[in-house]
């Protein structure tokens, strides 16, 4: 990738971090840029729920199958390991990990993924989540690509913190729970839109996001209005 393109992406992401910005939209944008910049098939972000599980907050495509593969990592896959050790985890060929993570590997293979990388989202001594990079080819990403992926994971952490000034861990807890609940509201709104227009979940998300952007609304605010029935999209 060109240095110029790289600079553009970081400027775009930094520009998004204005007062009262939309965290989920920001993280979604980041995963889309990740997939493009790092030349991987898909990227997804999981945050640590204080209940003790990892939960999906954003993915480069909202295809239900991708979200499900990401979510399988509540129990198995490279994300839990990355989360617990705070270190990147690389699976060069998923076929070699079939015994270790049978469900995760089966589902990942089903959508055509052959390799996966997990990079930690770190905040001081705490790991707050992980960035997943999937590719259709087996193999290792170059050290430079990993480095860039880690920089993007760090930007995601900054976004999470920036959404509110976080001075202590209790604020982080408040922020994480708010982000996770926003994600649930968005799923509910996707269901409403998908049923109303007889479209799939990814198309429903695109419609939701386009409407939010056109009206400079936060995804979670618009989604809530859709689910409450006060707004039709």
């Amino acid at each position: 990738m060109s240095e110029h393109r790289l600079a553009e992406v970081f400027v775009e992401l930094a520009d998004t971090l204005v007062a009262d910005f939309d965290l989920i939209d920001f993280l979604h944008r980041l995963t889309v840029r990740c997939a493009g910049l790092l030349d991987v098939a898909a990227a997804g972000l999981l945050l640590a729920d204080q209940r003790g599980a990892l939960r999906v907050v954003a993915a480069s495509t909202e295809e239900t199958r991708l979200l499900e593969v990401l979510q399988l990592q509540t129990d198995e896959g490279p994300c839990p390991e990355c989360f617990h050790t705070g270190q990147p985890v690389t699976v060069v060929d998923l076929a070699d990990a079939a015994d270790q993570w049978p469900r995760f590997v089966t589902e990942a293979h089903r959508i055509g993924f052959a390799s996966v990388h997990a990079l930690p989202m770190r905040l001081r001594t705490e790991v707050v989540g992980a960035l997943n990079l999937f590719d259709t080819r087996p193999g290792r990403l170059s050290p430079r690509t990993i480095q860039l992926g880690q920089a993007l994971a760090d930007v995601a952490t900054i976004g999470l913190l920036q959404a509110r000034t976080i001075s202590q861990s209790s604020m982080l807890a408040e922020q994480l729970q708010a982000a996770l609940n926003s994600r649930v509201i968005i799923e509910q709104a996707k269901g409403v839109i998908a049923e109303r227009h007889q479209i799939d979940m990814e198309q429903a998300f695109l419609r939701l996001r386009a409407t939010a952007r056109a009206g400079s609304r936060r995804l979670s605010d618009l989604s809530r209005a859709i689910v409450d029935g006060s707004e039709l999209v």
Binding site: D49, R51, A53, R55, V56, T64, L67, E68, Q71, T74, L180, V184, E187, Q188, A189, K190, G191, V192, I193, A194, E195, R196, M201, V227, D228, G229
Partner: peptide, 22 residues
């Protein structure tokens, strides 16, 4: 059912099918 995206998507769909609240 906190983490299962399909549960929440289905809730949104049923809301429209039945014309009820979430």
């Amino acid at each position: 059912p906190g983490s299962d995206a399909v549960v929440h998507q289905a809730t949104g769909m049923i809301l429209v099918q039945l014309g009820v609240t979430a």
